[in-house]
């Protein structure tokens, strides 16, 4: 149940906890001042309003089965997100949402699932991973391929280790740069796709990360034979109103805030090829 009917009016949420994830990345745990639950679908985002500073679109990174806690994982890259990084327990924030399309976790029932992600792109996919693991028996093979800049930049490291220790999913992590004390993989994420264990003709792929990484990952998936309309990508643009009015996030004929952020690749493949977009 949404706490406000007007999508332009923020609802008050209180910061319960802030956890540092990486040097520039942190997670906020929020609860509604109204104590209402906050249901959302994996892949959706909120507009977070830091009073006196501004509003930013941030994907929800928590567990959709726990709607009493709203979790956002944020990278501090500008004035608003730097301000959010300085939040303390008890601070109040404005939240509008949830907005946008979701990862097709229901539609993908019975399929093998390949999750391809890099950097902070793991955060918008984490709710989908929680859902897949909570409903493990409904899916075929589950493969998570994650890339980070260095071993120190691996997001949700402990969770990745926990998922990796399960016998019913496959998790591969690779980094772009490392020194010799790192015993894991060094290389790019798309390279992991060639050797991953899944049945291409029965696979749904969920991709979130830098657009170049997504482009090369789509290419690698297509080379393996995954159908274009079974590949989903999460796009990032400059979302402002979040309801398709202002046009700031327009991508070709689509509004990323309203039609996305999760798109079937077949729906936006032409936009991927237009350099000016």
């Amino acid at each position: 149940m949404k706490t406000s009917q007007d999508p332009m009016t923020p609802n008050l949420f209180q910061v319960q906890r802030i956890r540092r994830e990486l040097a520039d990345t942190f997670t906020l745990e929020l609860t509604a001042e109204s104590n209402n639950e906050f249901p959302f679908l994996p892949g959706q985002f909120n507009m977070i309003y830091l009073f006196g500073s501004g509003e930013v679109p941030i994907s929800i990174s928590g567990d959709p089965a726990q709607p009493n806690r709203l979790i956002h994982t944020i990278r501090a890259v500008g004035s608003v997100t730097e301000g959010l990084k300085s939040c303390k327990s008890g601070d109040m924030l404005g939240i509008r949402g949830p907005f946008g399309s979701a990862w097709p976790v229901e539609q993908a029932t019975g399929q093998d699932i390949v999750i391809i992600t890099g950097g902070i792109g793991l955060a918008p996919l984490r709710p989908a991973i929680y859902h897949l693991l909570a409903n493990r028996q409904r899916y075929g093979k589950i493969v998570i391929l994650y890339g980070a800049r260095t071993p120190a930049d691996i997001l949700f490291r402990k969770e990745l280790e926990r998922w990796r220790s399960r016998f019913d999913i496959s998790v591969e992590v690779t980094v772009d740069q490392a020194v010799s004390n790192w015993s894991g993989r060094v290389g790019v994420v798309p390279k992991l796709i060639n050797r991953a264990d899944f049945a291409p003709e029965e696979t749904t792929a969920l991709i979130c990360g830098p657009e170049i990484m997504m482009r090369f990952s789509v290419k690698a998936l297509q080379e393996r034979g995954v159908k274009e309309d079974h590949i989903y990508v999460s796009m990032e643009r400059n979302m402002k109103c979040a309801i398709g009015f202002c046009g700031h996030c327009q991508l070709g004929s689509q509004f990323v805030c309203k039609d996305g952020p999760v798109f079937p690749y077949s729906q936006i493949s032409s936009a991927f090829r237009i350099r000016e977009l």
Partner: peptide
């Protein structure tokens, strides 16, 4: 990898 895909993005919000 030369592109430093996951490095700090240009100044954002």
């Amino acid at each position: 990898r030369l592109l430093d895909l996951y490095g700090s993005p240009r100044k954002g919000q």
